[in-house]
Structures are given as C-alpha cells and as structure tokens.
Amino acid sequence: MTLTTPKTPRPPTSEPKPVRYDAKGNRKQRWDRRSVLTTAVLFVVTVYFISPAYWLLISSSKGPSTLYNSAGFWFAKFQFGKNISGLFSYDGGIFSRWLLNTVLYAGVGAILATLLAAAAGYALAKYEFKGREAIFWTILSGVLVPGTALALPLYLLMSKVHLTNTYWSVLIPSIVSPFGVYLARIYATGSIPTEIIEAGRVDGASEFRIFRTISLRIMSPALVTIFLFQFVAIWNNFFLPLVMLSNQKLYPVTLGLYSWDNQYGQAPQLISYVVTGALVSVIPLVIAFLSLQRFWRSGLTAGSIRI
C-alpha cells in the first residue's frame, strides 16, 4: 500500500520529486518553449489567487478615507503603525482577546479532537470486536451531516443546560471529528504492523501502553494531518460561534471582525481595523499552513485511497 509513509525529513528547499522527471532523460531543468508557455499561464492563475491577499497587505496600511479613495492595488498615505496601535487598543484591546480565544478554540479543540479520533480510529483498525463496522459506519455518516444543521439543535440543547454563551459551547462541539476517525483508521490499518502490537503484549505491556508508546508514534504523520484539518475546520466555523456566543469577550477573531464589519457605521475607523485585523489574524495561519503543506498532501493521499 502506498499509504503515505511521508518521505523522511527532507530539506525544505528541495524539489518535491526530482526523480520523477529524471526518468524522462534529464529534460527536467530545461526551459523549452512548452515550459515557458506553461509557466506563463500558471503565473496568470497565480495573479488570481494572490491579488486579494496583496490587496489586503496594501490596504492594511491605509486609513479609513484613503481606503475608499485611492488606487486599490497601490499604497496611499502610509499609516500601518497607526492602524496596528488602533486595532489593539480599540474597545479596551478586545482584539488581542479575540486572538487568544481563537488560539484556544482552534488549538486546544484540535488537539483534543486529534487524540479522541486517534484512539477511536486505532480501535477500529487494530481490534476485532462486536459492532465494529456498525460503529464505523455511524461515525462515517457523521462526515456527511452538515455542521450548520447540527448547530441549531445543539444551541437549543446547550441553552437547556445553560452552556450557551460560554467557552464550552464552542469548544465541546469542536473536539468531535468524524473525518479524523476515518483518517486515523485508514492510516493505522496501513501502517501499524500487528506483530508490533503482539510483541508489546508478549512483553506484558497493557493495551493502553502499547497505544501510547508504540501506535501513537507510528501514527504521528496522520495525527498532524488530522490536527490541521480540525484546526482549520474550527477556525473556519463561523456558524457555531455566531449561534452560541453573545458575549463579545468570548468571540473568536472571525466573529469579532464580522461584528466590526457590521457596525462600522458608528465608527468609521473600524473599517481600517477590520482590514488590518484580517491581515494580523491571517499571517500566522498562512505561515503555519504553507510550512506544514506536506502533511496535507500525505494525509490526503491516505484519505482518498479507500474512499
């Protein structure tokens, strides 16, 4: 099975798969007419994907009036510093609180989700037991249930136990990842040899200890993928916090920026803060994402092999 075994750590600058093209008689590095044309087309496509981010970068240096009255793709009166200090001091510095909340929801939520999914996927992969397939299919059909259809009844239930408008109301739903269980099961099936588990048993290790010290380690590339998936899913989940939270102090940064975007009529400078805040909140994510890209690829290869 080609199940991911992500190629051993490779210097980040090296080409993804150089061998691939060398087989074709070393034409790889030659710039013939075909590759110049292809590259030109790809650059045009790049403009589409990059220019909104570029606009964000430029616009975060503009004030509320120049934002509307200057060329969108070039600098006007440069006041990035003023925007930043305004952004972090507005409304008692609530923006930093939103950033921290986001880290809490997405970071802690994704870690817990990964651990739960890893244990469940491991059990489904490496044990035979009654109801295994039924449980797996029930979990898997959870992937197909739209999150927004869940959020509404979840809100009603949470309000019955007075959990709405608390950290828990966003955090608890975030730690369940059916897709994570699916990925963990596939990866565990393909990568953990049953003999290793048996060897652990012969040595007298408990089942949990085998899982913790051997299996989790083997599954670690899949765990990174599951973590990334869930991290993004929580980051991107707008509906759940929108429904659950009314206290601004509990907002994740996305909901906070949305609320500013909707009330800038009252304070025109807010629009600059929305733009600058969007940039500030996106930068760490973009860096983390792009540097962890190979985990996306490896995990996704595993995920699509059996679907």
Partner: peptide, 16 residues
C-alpha cells in the same frame, strides 16, 4: 500560491 487562499478563513475571505 494556489493553496494560499485556503489558509484564509472563510469569514475573512468574504470580508476581503
């Protein structure tokens, strides 16, 4: 470059 937009949360992309 093509993957970059995915790192931008949907809400922020829509505001953008």
């Amino acid at each position: 470059a093509f993957f970059l937009p995915y790192a931008i949360p949907g809400v922020i992309a829509a505001i953008l």
